[in-house]
Design a protein around this nucleic acid. Sequence first.
DNA 1: CTGATTTAGTCTACGTTGTGGACTAAATAT
DNA 2: ATATTTAGTCCACAACGTAGACTAAATCAG
Lengths: 418, 418
Amino acid sequence: MTQAVRHDAMRARNLALVLGEVNSRGPVTRAALAEITGLTKTTVSKLVADLIDAGLVVETGAVRDGERGRPGVVVRVSGEHVASVGLEINVDYLAVRVVDLSRTVRLRRTQAVDNRFAQPGDVVALLRDLALKAVDDAVDMGLRVVGGVLAVPGPVDQRTGTVHNAPNLGWREVPVAALLELPFPVQVENEANLAALGELWFGSGLSDFLHVSGEIGIGAGLVVRGSLFQGSHGYAGELGHVVVSPDGPACRCGGRGCLEQYAGQDALAAATGLAGTDVQATTTGNGSRAAAAAGGGAQAATGGTTAGDISRIVARLQAQDPAALAACERAGWALGVALSSAINLVDPDTIVLGGIYGPLFPWIGEAVTATLTSRLGQMRDAVPPVVVSRLGTEAAALGAAGQVIQRVIADPAALLQT
Amino acid sequence: MTQAVRHDAMRARNLALVLGEVNSRGPVTRAALAEITGLTKTTVSKLVADLIDAGLVVETGAVRDGERGRPGVVVRVSGEHVASVGLEINVDYLAVRVVDLSRTVRLRRTQAVDNRFAQPGDVVALLRDLALKAVDDAVDMGLRVVGGVLAVPGPVDQRTGTVHNAPNLGWREVPVAALLELPFPVQVENEANLAALGELWFGSGLSDFLHVSGEIGIGAGLVVRGSLFQGSHGYAGELGHVVVSPDGPACRCGGRGCLEQYAGQDALAAATGLAGTDVQATTTGNGSRAAAAAGGGAQAATGGTTAGDISRIVARLQAQDPAALAACERAGWALGVALSSAINLVDPDTIVLGGIYGPLFPWIGEAVTATLTSRLGQMRDAVPPVVVSRLGTEAAALGAAGQVIQRVIADPAALLQT
DNA sequence: CTGATTTAGTCTACGTTGTGGACTAAATAT
DNA sequence: ATATTTAGTCCACAACGTAGACTAAATCAG
C-alpha cells in the first residue's frame, strides 16, 4: 500500500516535482517553476537551493530574453556530479556505459566476447573488471557513481538479482547481482525491457510505445505514459512466443509457430541459407570457455548465429538475394501477425522496431505495416505507426544506465540523505 | 505529472491511507491503525474523527479480546450513507446495481430487453428511468448516491463518455454519458474492463489476473496488483481479435482466424448447429425497434444469438451432443492458443474465465488448460491457473458500481469538500 | 538620463499538519 | 486492592508551505 505522508515526505515529493520539471523542460527560472508546479516562489527557491547544495542542479547565469522586468536565473540538471553505470551481458559482447544525471553519455565501452559457451562466473568477472575500470574513469571526471543496472538477455528475478533462464547464454538460475559485487547497488533486468527504456530516454522522444528487440530471441518492452509495464511477475513482453500459426514450426518453448520461428535471428539466417547450425548440437566438447572468458575477442565459429550474421544477411539483401528477400518478407508478415495480437491486447500508441530489425527495416518494414493494416484497419481509426529505433545495439545498456538516473530524478530526497 | 503536495494534500493522502486500511482489514482499532500506517495515535485519532464526521466510517463498540489493557474501539467502513450505482447496457438486458461504501449490494434490478436493433436514444431513456428509480430507492434507504459508472459492450472514449463502436448493439459514436443526464457524474467504461474489476472487488479475492469476458465478442481485463491495465488509449484487452490461426475464418475486424471466430458466442452457436444466422443479414427491414425499446421484454427472434442460446448450448452439451462437444473442444483449444499469446505478452498471475465461459467451463476448461500447458510448460516454472468466475452476468454491473466506491476509498478528501 | 513599470527572487509572520511524550481511561494479572 | 498493560486524548512543538511585503534588476516612456 501507499505510505504515510509526513512533512519529510511532502518535501521529498516537492523536491522530486521541481527536479522533474527542471529535467523535462531544460533550463528554467525559479519563477517559471513556481508557475508550473503551483508552488509559491518562496518554496521553489528553498527547494532549488537544496537541489543545488546536493549538486543535482546548477545555475547557468541570467537570461536576457528581451522581456521587461528583472531577468531570471535559469537552473538546469547538473551533469557534473552524479552518474550511473549501465551494464550489458549479451551473446557476443559485454557493454558498459556511464551516463551522468543530465543524461549525457560520458563513457562507452564495448568488448566483443563470445559468451555463448563461457561459464557465468568468468563472464561476470570480466564484466566486473570493465565496470570497475569505468567507475575509476568516472571518478577521474569528478563523477560519483550512485548505482548501476545490468541488462541480460532473459527473464530475471529482480528481488534476488537472479537470471532465471538465458537460453542463448546457456544460463539457468545464475545470481549475477551477487556475483558482480560492485561497490554500489546493482539491479538486474531483462534486456528487452531496458532497451525499451533506452528508447524512452535516449531515443526518439516518444513516451507511449511498444519497443521490439529483435535478437536471437525476440523481446518487447511496453512503455505507457513514460513507464514500463512489467506484468504480474515482471515477465511481460515475451513477444517472441506469441503465436503466429498454431501448428507452425516447433519452438524451443514447447509451442509451435511462435514468432521467433519466423522472425528471430537464427530463423532468418537459416531461411537466408546461412550457416546457422543448431546450437544444442555443439554445446558439448568445447574447450574455448576459458579462452573466451579471458577476454580474447575471437569469435569462435561454434555454431548458432552471432551479430556478424546480420551484416551477412544485409549484404545478401543488398545483393537482391531471393532467399534473403523471401525470408524478410515472411518475417515481416509474421511480425505483423504477432503485433496485431499485441496491439489488440495492450493497445500501444506506436511500434518501435529495434535490435536486428534496425538494419533489416528497409526489407521488413513494409510487410509489417501492410499486415497490420489489413488485420486491424477496420476496427481502429488508426493503426499504430511502425518506426525504427535509432539506437541500435546500444539501447539496452543506455536504458540500464538511464534507469538509475530516472530513480534519482524521481526521488532526489533519497540521495540527499546519504 | 504529479501534483505539488501541500498540507491539504498531505492530509488527503493520510485520510485515504487510513480509510484504505479500514476497508481492507475490516474492523480495526485506532491503535492498530497507528501501528499499521506508521502514523502516531494522535494523528490517526484525528483522521478517524474526520472520517466518522463524513459518515464514511463508524465505531462498532469496544472489543473485549481477552488481552490485557484497555480494550480498543473498532471502526469499520460505514455502509449507511454513501452509495453508488452501476449501470449496464448489454445486447439483451439492462442492469442496475446499487452498492454501498462497504461493498454490500443494496439493490439489484435487471430488465430483459432486446437492444440489438433499438435506437440508442430509446435504450438510454429506459436505462435512465431504471437508474432514477434505483436512486429513489437508495434515498429511501438513507443512502446518498455519489456517482455512477455505465458498462457498455465496446470501446469507449472515457473523456467524453462516448461509445465508439459497439457492434452488437449497432452503435457508433454514441455520447451515452451526455444522453443519460443523471443527477450525479457518470463515467462510461468497456464492459470487459468492468467485469474484471467486478471480479476484483466482488469475486474470488484475487488481485492479479486476466479476466476473460466471453460474450458475442470476447473481451479481457487485466488486473495487476489490484489495478486495471488500460493501455495507451484505454483500448487494451481485445482478446477476441488475438490471432489463433493467421488464415482461419474471416472476422468482422478485417483479420482472419481471430479468437472470436472460434470461441465467441455466435461461433459456438453456429458450430453447435443452432440458429445463429448472420446478424448483418437481418439488420434491414426490421420494425421491432420501438417495441423493444419500449421495454417489452419480448426476445424477438431477430437473428444473431442471445443469452438464451447459451442455455440451449448447455442443454445440448448435457445431452452429449457431438457437435456441441466438438465446438467446445475447438473453442477451448483456440482460447488456449490466444491465452498463451496473452500470457507471454502481459504475464498475468491467473486466468479467470467469465461470461459465457462460466456455464461452459465444464466443457472447455480442460482443453484450455491442456493447450496452455503444452504451449508454455517448458518456458515457465508454472503455467497460470485457469479458474472460473462465480459472478456470471453480474460482473460488469458490479464492477461499475464498485469503481465509484473505489474512488471514494482512494480519495475520501474529495468527498469531504462537497 | 530619470522615473515608472514590470518581473525575479528573498524575507518574515503565519497557518496547517504531524510528532512525541505526558496524561487519563479501562481492562487483566497478582 | 494494587500493579501492569493497552487505548485513546491533550498539548507544546517542529516541519513545511503560504501570502504578501520587500529588494533587485531589467525595460519603457519621456
